[in-house]
């Protein structure tokens, strides 16, 4: 069930990437970073956190064992 939430959050993040409400906003965050850039820098951190949760809750746990089982170049 948790893995489904990972992909729901992935879709939500993709939607939030389209930050059309900030299109003509020139505010400087802390007087330094344009808000459009600050938002997307924050988005990069959110993406990293999403992948932390994906590794924790959506990891294909037995893919390792499956790949090692009877592993072969002879079929290629």
């Amino acid at each position: 069930m948790k893995s489904k939430w990972v992909w729901i959050i992935f879709v939500l993040l993709f939607i939030l990437h389209q930050d059309f409400w900030l299109w003509d906003d020139r505010t400087l965050v802390f007087g330094v970073m344009p808000i459009g850039l600050a938002y997307h820098a924050g988005f990069s951190i959110a993406a990293a956190l999403l992948w932390v949760s994906a590794v924790k809750w959506a990891w294909p746990s037995d893919i390792e064992a499956w790949a090692d089982e009877d592993a072969t170049g002879s079929e290629a």
């Binding site: 992935f10 930050d19 344009p34 459009g36 850039l37 820098a41 988005f43 990069s44 993406a47």
Partner: peptide, 17 residues
């Protein structure tokens, strides 16, 4: 500055995907 959202933050989400 839209270039960052256009290329970098998209890549952070989609490359890892």
């Amino acid at each position: 500055i839209g270039v960052y959202g256009l290329m970098a933050s998209y890549s952070g989400l989609l490359h890892s995907a």
